[in-house]
Computed example of a mutant assay.
Amino acid sequence: MKFDNAEDIIQLTPLWTGERFQNGRPKVPDDILRRMRRITLEEAWSPLWHRGYDYQFQGDFESTHPGKVIVGRAVTAVFVPVRPELHDTLLQYGNEQENRKGFFNQWVIDSLVEDDVVVVDLFDKIYKGTFVGGNLSTAIAARTKRGGAVIWGGVRDTQQIAKIENINIYHRGIDPTPIREVTMLGMNVPCRIGRAVCLPGDVVLATPAGVIFIPPHLAELAVVLAEKSQARDLFGFQRLDEGVYTTADIDGSWAMPVWNDFLNWIATSEKAAEYRSLTWDEELEEARALEGKGPSNDARA
């Protein structure tokens, strides 16, 4: 039994071919995280849903900083109710064999780096299930800079945590009790949050609407498709407001004259500056193939 084991993490994430941390956790590029902060939960969700990832979203959270979105790479932890001999064995192993200090939750937080988000299955335990309070939240802020935590369990010291401006803690409830009667079975292992599944290195997008866990090998695709959706929406909103097109022109598959107008808008409009690196060859090929076939519904993702 090993915690945060590189061989296990690499085995669990075979579709990721990019850079990894020393412990094997996928390291989605910083630029993808930056771009992810600009997209909505639904925009990120759609590419996953259309590729068979049906269990990546979970709602029903409270948060310490309502309205604040966080994005980062997942560091996972899985807890179970305490069973004495199992608890003692795992705690002793971590302290003596892996030179870890303190309790299980401290092990997880001590491993964090910039842009990490802690993802914790505490089996929806709130009373004596408070994964963080003021001290550990301060440590999360110091280590992750702009990350935070998603906890399927409780928190404490929320008045103190609310004063930490650069993070957000998504959780299930508040209780003044310290964490007790729980044992960590695994660190950076598959983690269940409600009905969602998170793996170490997933990109966490936590919003007021809920939390989505994006597999690292799909993170760039999700961002690109979301940015394309945003660009088309901005163009469509503007042209509808100007009365240039009808809703049928914009909501359906675009005819080539609309596409030509859109590409000119991308090249010249200040609103489109951040989307100019996107390519549209596949969409244009599809539009040309549909010429003369009549209208159809649009499925962008």
Score class of each variant (00 low, 15 high):
Asp110Ala: 15
Leu112Gly: 03
Val113Cys: 14
Glu114Ile: 06
Asp115Met: 04
Val118Trp: 01
Leu122Ile: 14
Leu122Lys: 03
Phe123Asp: 10
Lys125Ile: 13
Ile126Cys: 09
Ile126Thr: 14
Tyr127Val: 11
Lys128Val: 05
Thr130Gly: 09
Phe131Ala: 04
Phe131Trp: 14
Asn135Leu: 05
Leu136Cys: 01
Leu136Arg: 08
Leu136Phe: 05
Ala141Val: 04
Ala141Pro: 03
Ala142Gly: 07
Arg143Glu: 08
Thr144His: 03
Lys145Asn: 06
Lys145Gly: 04
Arg146Ser: 13
Gly147Asn: 02
Gly147Lys: 02
Ile151Ser: 05
Ile151Met: 08
Gly153Gln: 10
Gly154Thr: 11
Gly154Cys: 12
Gly154Val: 12
Gly154Lys: 07
Val155Arg: 00
Arg156Phe: 06
Asp157Cys: 01
Thr158Phe: 01
Thr158Ser: 04
Gln159Arg: 10
Ala162Leu: 01
Lys163Gln: 13
Lys163Gly: 10
Lys163Asn: 11
Asn166Lys: 11
Asn166Cys: 09
Ile167Ala: 00
Asn168Tyr: 00
Ile169Trp: 02
His171Ile: 04
His171Gly: 05
His171Cys: 10
Arg172Pro: 07
Ile174His: 04
Ile174Tyr: 03
Ile174Val: 11
Asp175Arg: 06
Pro178Lys: 06
Glu181His: 09
Glu181Lys: 07
Glu181Gly: 02
Val182Ala: 12
Val182Thr: 14
Met184Ala: 08
Gly186Met: 05
Met187Ala: 08
Met187Gln: 13
Val189Glu: 13
Val189Trp: 00
Pro190Ile: 06
Arg192His: 10
Arg192Thr: 12
Arg195Gly: 13
Arg195Leu: 04
Val197Gln: 07
Val197Leu: 08
Val197Ser: 06
Cys198Thr: 13
Cys198Asn: 03
Val203Met: 08
Val203Glu: 03
Val204Asn: 00
Val204Ser: 01
Leu205Asp: 03
Leu205Val: 11
Leu205His: 09
Ala206Gly: 07
Thr207Cys: 07
Ala209Pro: 01
Ile212Trp: 00
Phe213His: 05
Phe213Ala: 06
Phe213Val: 07
Phe213Pro: 00
Ile214Gly: 02
Pro215Ile: 05
Pro216Gln: 04
Pro216Cys: 05
His217Ala: 05
Leu218Glu: 06
Leu218Pro: 00
Leu218Ile: 06
Ala219Asn: 04
Glu220Arg: 10
Leu221Glu: 15
Ala222Ser: 11
Ala222Leu: 04
Ala222Arg: 01
Ala222Pro: 06
Val223Ala: 02
Val224Ala: 12
Val224Ile: 10
Val224His: 06
Leu225Pro: 02
Ala226Gly: 11
Ser229Phe: 02
Ala231Phe: 03
Ala231Trp: 00
Asp233Phe: 15
Leu234Phe: 15
Gly236Asp: 09
Gln238Phe: 03
Arg239Trp: 07
Leu240Met: 14
Asp241Ile: 09
Val244Ser: 15
Tyr245Cys: 13
Ala248Arg: 15
Ala248Cys: 08
Ala248Met: 15
Asp249Tyr: 02
Asp249Gln: 08
Asp251Trp: 10
Asp251Lys: 11
Asp251Leu: 13
Gly252Gln: 12
Ser253Asn: 15
Ser253Met: 12
